[in-house]
């Protein structure tokens, strides 16, 4: 991130707005807010250069609670607005704050195209597998059989996996993190900011009102270490309370093994390479149900749209005889009337 002025020193309080936060008590959205407010001072960016853009949903209230620039827009369309902000001023750190419905139902088309283009901005998806703001209808990530206000007998529509969809759309950066894990979430926000290109962070966000406990099986403090693997680039894929479980590749599948059993040693365990261009393994990790992969799963640095555009613009500018609009208007086939 280039900045025009020297970076000021901040604490999380500098990023807190005077607006009363109106999420339900106990909602993970508070964790996300606090993690972002803590991450920003660490990013080395001036407050005036930070912009939060959201769509509509509980999650999309986010910009109001930050003391930065922000816009609360319309349902599903934050990616378009954010793209315009970033293309207009590439110096800004732009964040799209969105929900599972906002990004993948009404905004599904914009979501995939944003990832495809690779503009240098960040998107945080609050995935609570439900429509919170409209009071509890199933969303594109709700599971089959889920009972919601619009599926009283159980949801019949199979869900998307945000990570799979994102990688399918050629996301260069994808991370997943539990909504009850502020420490790692903060770091992931910082990593996403530093990453050049579109970064997508899926937060498994508990909605205490309409879908309480939907991630408990993997995010609960008691089981978390056994049910999640926290991936770090360059480190072996090891997890478990005793740090004795690991992932290996068995034919075309990831397999969980126990270090010390059946002759398995730490050497046999896969090492995470988030920066690899080939996304085959990242896709397997995204799909994995046990353990659930969290952390930065993919972080492949690619040319951004702005870089491509800037290079072209520079080239066209240097070859062009048009410096001012008048040069164009009076060029070519003109004639005099006397």
């Amino acid at each position: 991130m280039e900045t025009t002025t020297a970076v000021k020193k901040y604490t999380f309080k500098d990023f807190t707005s005077d607006q009363e936060v109106r999420w339900c008590p106990g909602c993970d959205d508070y964790v996300i807010l606090r993690s972002m407010q803590k991450a920003l001072p660490e990013m080395g960016v001036n407050k005036e250069d930070v912009v939060f853009i959201s769509g509509i949903g509980c999650s999309s209230r986010f910009p109001y609670y930050m003391s930065t620039y922000g816009m609360h827009t319309i349902h599903g369309r934050a990616p378009g607005i954010a793209s315009g902000v970033k293309l207009a001023n590439p110096n800004l750190s732009v964040w799209v704050m969105t929900g599972d419905g906002d990004s993948m139902a009404i905004g599904g088309n914009h979501f995939i195209h944003l990832l495809r283009r690779n503009i240098d901005l960040n998107m945080v998806m609050f995935n609570n597998e439900i429509y919170g703001l409209t009071k509890g209808q199933f969303s594109p990530t709700s599971i089959i059989g889920q009972k919601t206000k619009s599926s009283p007998y159980g949801n019949t529509q199979p869900p998307f996996s945000p990570g799979e969809l994102a990688l399918g759309a050629n996301a260069r950066f994808f991370a997943r993190i539990g909504g009850n894990n502020p420490k790692d979430m903060t770091q992931i926000f910082i990593d996403a900011h530093k990453f050049k290109g579109t970064s997508l962070i899926e937060v498994l966000q508990n909605c205490v009102i309409f879908n309480d406990g939907c991630f408990d099986e993997v995010t609960d403090k008691e089981v978390k270490e056994d049910k999640q693997i926290f991936l770090e680039h360059g480190k072996p894929m090891i997890f478990g309370k005793n740090n004795d479980k690991g992932l290996v590749l068995n034919k075309l599948k990831l397999e969980v093994v126990t270090i010390g059993e059946n002759g398995i040693t730490q050497e046999d365990i896969l090492v995470h390479n988030a920066k690899e261009e080939d996304k085959t393994l990242h896709q397997m990790l995204v799909r994995l149900e046990y353990p659930l992969a969290t952390g930065v799963i993919r972080s492949f640095t690619d040319v951004t749209l702005e870089e491509r555009e800037d290079a072209l613009t520079a080239q066209v500018k240097s070859n062009s005889k048009f410096k001012k609009a008048d040069d164009l208007f009076f060029s070519g086939e003109t004639y005099e009337v006397k």
Partner: peptide
């Protein structure tokens, strides 16, 4: 055609993204 004047022309995925990207650019001062 007019990149030489610094024109930023963005062909979006649909009309909604066309107008919303323009709204974003307006917010950012273009």
């Amino acid at each position: 055609k007019h990149k030489h004047f610094g024109v930023k022309a963005f062909q979006a995925e649909d009309e909604i993204a066309g107008v919303t990207s323009a709204i974003g650019a307006a917010f950012a001062g273009d």
